[in-house]
Nucleic acid binder design. Structure first.
Lengths: 262, 262
DNA sequence: CAGTGGTCTAGACCACACC
DNA sequence: GTGTGGTCTAGACCACTGG
């Protein structure tokens, strides 16, 4: 119904507009099924590829996803809070070892993670950030993190091999005293960190590993920590699917953010 | 050439893989033109739609873009640094009024911006953050920011009308003492801020306004500032095209970031 | 005007999950 | 099996921009 030719807006756009509106205003709720391609073909009286083109627009906007062979569904837009700096805050000495696990449990969800430790020649961007020499190796602790059984993001922590050799960091278990404490025990107290956030579409590898549907961007969040001598001691690479997270920073004291200041 | 049928990987995937590899390893440099659809059709011996499907994959990965009627081109992957907290740092009393303008000039680029001020019934998310009553209005200063003549992001600052009524914030010019100083003059010193970063695909409106090509995600960066009485006094909505920015936070003192902590 | 990508049609065969 | 979306073909007409 109701597509008109010879209007400036193309047919696929008109179809996409109508469906988009319904998704955004809640007429079509999150998780509900859209009409099948066949039904849309009949409703609008157009060719299959035109319907598919219209649906592809919404898929790439992140609004809907195809679940073959069940149909197209409205995507879930709820997000979990991701607070990179949460452990900058004061913390009881009853040391919780892993902020991810403890925070999410407090939120009433069931967190879990897999850990895999290996010694690698790290990717170039990490090498730069850790200021490693060409042939210098690093230890990486790769984690995949789950909430209520569902994979939500990956977290890879790289350490220069030279400073973690023989420490508990090299064992593939949760670190009971925590990685920071372990680094501090080795004489490296982290006093400064730089966070970088890149927003982009995932590589095919990432899409596969994190099970991302088309139309899902990611945040690549890299944290590089420096010790009291301003040497980089850790670089963490997080890949966060955009549809599942809000990144939150809280800033106390002093002046404001971007915009007109002073 | 060299696509094989009856392999597990589809033809369009094989074509996309080959081109992607060339883009990523630099064989095809940023800004260079890809073969036209017609040429690819001949090279691979497939139908036009198959070639178009392959190219669409790369477009949606953000690697290439179509510039009609010139052809497909490898996208630029350089990014500018965006530092939300840059004016948290100590600043000389020789008050630079706008961090965007001053920082970018220092970086040897030519920044400019348009400013548009209006009184509006703000969108729901902003209303919540400013804790406005249902019928309460806000002043919005909408900026579009350019670098070397090219639009790079939008910055909309919302203020509760009640606290900025009659102040210089309501005039559509650069604020010489700065917005924060102006707020402080009115008795509202910002002492705390919350940053939220949402990563998503742009709405069609945003895509048009910021001239985004398909395959470009955005970061929606919302900063809400609170005064000494913990009242929200400003909420800033930035829309940053993912392909043009790195968001950077520097954190001094204390403990580390995400991951296993002490 | 020629060449580009954008839109649209009408068909075909396939893999997959569910009944 | 039946119905779903995924892939692929072979054609057509269009709008735009550059030479």
């Amino acid at each position: 119904m109701a597509v008109s030719r010879s209007v400036s807006r193309s047919v696929k756009q008109q179809i996409a507009d109508e469906l988009r509106e319904q998704v955004l205003n809640g007429t079509r709720a999150e998780g509900t099924k859209l009409p099948s391609e066949a039904e849309l073909i009949e409703q609008y009286g157009v060719a299959r590829n035109t319907v598919r083109d219209a649906l592809a627009l919404l898929v790439n906007e992140g609004l809907i996803e195809a679940r073959r062979p069940h149909g197209y569904f409205v995507r879930d837009r709820r997000r979990m809070q991701y607070r990179p700096q949460s452990d900058l805050r004061a913390r009881p000495t009853t040391a919780p070892h892993d902020t991810f696990l403890t925070e999410q449990e407090q939120a009433g969800r069931t967190p879990s993670q897999t850990i895999e430790v290996s010694i690698v020649d790290p990717p170039e961007p990490i090498k730069e950030r850790l200021q490693l020499k060409a042939d210098e190796l690093a230890v990486v602790r790769r984690r995949l993190r789950y909430l209520d059984g569902e994979l939500i993001y990956s977290n890879d922590s790289y350490y220069p091999l030279s400073i973690v050799q023989g420490t508990p960091i090299m064992s593939p278990h949760d670190l009971s005293p925590g990685a920071n404490q372990t680094l501090a025990d080795g004489g490296h107290v982290q006093v400064r960190a730089i966070d970088e956030i890149y927003v982009r579409m995932p590589t095919p590898d990432e899409a596969k590993r994190l099970d991302l549907t088309p139309g899902t961007p990611v945040a690549e969040h890299i944290i590089t920590g420096y010790d009291q001598d301003d040497r980089p001691v850790r670089s963490v690479l997080n890949i966060l699917p955009g549809n599942r997270h809000v990144i939150i920073y809280e800033r106390d004291g002093l002046e404001p953010p971007d915009g007109e200041s002073a």
